[in-house]
């Protein structure tokens, strides 16, 4: 198994700053915007971005939630391994708010499709945007594209993109595994 480093800690830090700034450009003080990290791995990215927006750019009252899509997946009863659900916590209203979904890797687009269905259980947002750290081009199964992307990867099917976070894996890094 070959493992090639695509991004190191410094490169990721620069990308996170840029993504945070792009969010601020479009959403000002976040009065009408909520950030939602997708479980399990989008939550790390969402927390990092929220931290930068709150501490480096003094945005107060930023609303951050986490959404689990297990019960909305389209491959239930079609997988060998059972799926374990994660915690959903959205303790604010999303009615008429701008929602930004945050996930680490955009691949087939199926998780985002599930998230679009799942989030409707909490109300009717005025609009939904998508932010991803890694956009794997040419691998989409559905017509879904990101509004904000950190880094674009052209990978073929057998290759995997692995995002590691300091909180979980000791260091920030993005690898291509083949």
């Amino acid at each position: 198994m070959a493992k090639k480093k695509l991004l190191n800690k410094n490169a990721i830090a620069i990308i996170l700053q840029r993504l945070a700034c792009q969010l601020i450009e479009n959403h000002n003080n976040f009065a009408d915007t909520v950030l939602i990290g997708l479980q399990p791995r989008g939550v790390f990215l969402a927390k990092r971005l929220a931290h930068i927006i709150q501490n480096d750019y003094q945005v107060k009252d930023l609303k951050l939630g986490q959404l689990d899509i297990t019960f909305y997946r389209d491959d239930f009863r079609r997988r060998e391994e059972p799926l374990a659900a994660n915690t959903t916590s959205i303790d604010f209203t999303i009615e008429n708010k701008k929602v930004v979904f945050i996930d680490d890797v955009l691949f087939s687009g199926r998780s985002i499709r599930a998230a679009l269905t799942a989030v409707q259980s909490f109300g009717r947002p005025s609009e939904i945007e998508l932010l991803v750290l890694i956009d794997r081009r040419f691998s989409r199964h559905l017509p879904i594209q990101p509004d904000y992307k950190g880094f674009q990867v052209d990978a073929i099917n057998q290759e995997k993109v692995l995002v590691q976070w300091q909180e979980q894996n000791k260091a920030d890094a993005v690898y291509m595994v083949s």
């Binding site: 019960f71 909305y72 374990a84 659900a85 915690t87 959903t88 409707q120 259980s121 109300g123």
Partner: peptide, 23 residues
Amino acid sequence: FDTANHFKEVINRPIKKVPSLRD
């Protein structure tokens, strides 16, 4: 119990339904 924890959160949402068993 672990699975029920997640469903307890689901049934306290404004829309208390998931599509898992639609077929």
